[in-house]
């Protein structure tokens, strides 16, 4: 492929058309027209891209189940340049993640993962770390034991990879590093994007109080490999604190109310 067309999509001029061949994860799709589908992918080479799959809803469609959400596939997309929607030429399943679509908890948590990626990432901006994270997150949800922890760790990492990395190790205002095992309260400010100590908390609103254990957990888990970070086991109180913190932080990033399913202990089937 022309080197100029690789990477950021903003380089793709309005009059340039290109065939994009890449690995991609299906984020979702909506019905379009009589039998078509408008599908959103997170692709390895181009980040979030959209394309129209003509006739995808017909019984003998060549796309089959390859455009169902959470599917990891080989995508061939004919990009038309500019803001025009691409045409999906081919999508071959690499890993279907079908089990995620057959269990209510998995549907909820996997939907949350792909929805967050859809909302947080800009169009046509490749991010290999997010691609790998989403791939691992969905795989871990499909086979994992602690699915809610998988989702919380996913959110913690996603905000960092998207450029919203909160400061966990020091106070945002006085820059003083937090000491391990300290007893004084710590607060999280979604607007400032990090933690503040109790001395600096005055005047900053709104604030979410968190324990030092939660702050240390979030800091440590972000420094570890995503799969290995599952060895860390938070207490139920820490899980609650992380859930409340991310609800507020994600809502402030996306401007939409965020409901963290990873917080729920039982079924949330309506």
């Amino acid at each position: 492929m022309n080197a100029r067309l690789e990477g950021r999509g903003s380089l793709l001029r309005d009059d340039v058309m290109a065939l994009l061949t890449t690995e991609a994860i299906v984020l979702g799709g909506i019905r379009l027209g009589e039998a078509d589908k408008l599908v959103t992918f997170f692709s390895l080479k181009r980040g979030k891209v959209k394309g129209v799959a003509a006739g995808a809803r017909r019984m003998k469609s060549r796309f089959g189940a390859s455009l169902e959400p959470f599917t990891h596939c080989h995508l061939i997309l004919f990009e038309k340049g500019g803001d025009k929607l691409g045409r999906i030429n081919q999508a071959d399943i690499i890993r279907s993640n079908q089990s995620l679509r057959e269990d209510w908890t998995c549907i909820e948590l996997a939907s949350q993962m792909v929805n967050l990626v859809t909302q947080i990432t800009p169009d046509i901006e490749p991010n290999m770390e997010i691609f790998k994270l989403l791939l691992q997150g969905l795989e871990l949800l499909a086979v994992g034991e602690d699915r809610r922890l998988t989702t919380l760790l996913f959110i913690n990492r996603l905000v960092a990879y998207s450029g919203y990395q909160p400061h966990w190790d020091h106070c945002l205002k006085c820059r003083q590093a937090f000491k391990a095992g300290a007893s004084a309260a710590v607060y999280f400010s979604s607007i400032s994007g990090g933690t503040v100590c109790s001395n600096c908390a005055k005047g900053i609103r709104p604030l979410i109080p968190i324990s030092h254990a939660t702050r240390a957990f979030l800091s440590a888990s972000q420094k570890m490999d995503y799969v290995r970070s599952h060895r860390l086991k938070p207490s139920p109180v820490m899980t609650q604190e992380m859930g409340a913190l991310f609800n507020d932080y994600i809502s402030s990033i996306t401007g939409r109310r965020f409901q963290n399913f990873a917080l729920e202990t039982g079924t949330t089937c309506p």
């Binding site: 003998k60 089959g64 189940a65 399943i93 079908q98």
Partner: peptide, 16 residues
């Protein structure tokens, strides 16, 4: 599998 197609063209999920 829908009636009238060649199995070789069916995707993995449909086959499973």
């Amino acid at each position: 599998i829908p009636v009238g197609i060649d199995l070789e063209y069916a995707d993995e999920v449909t086959l499973i």
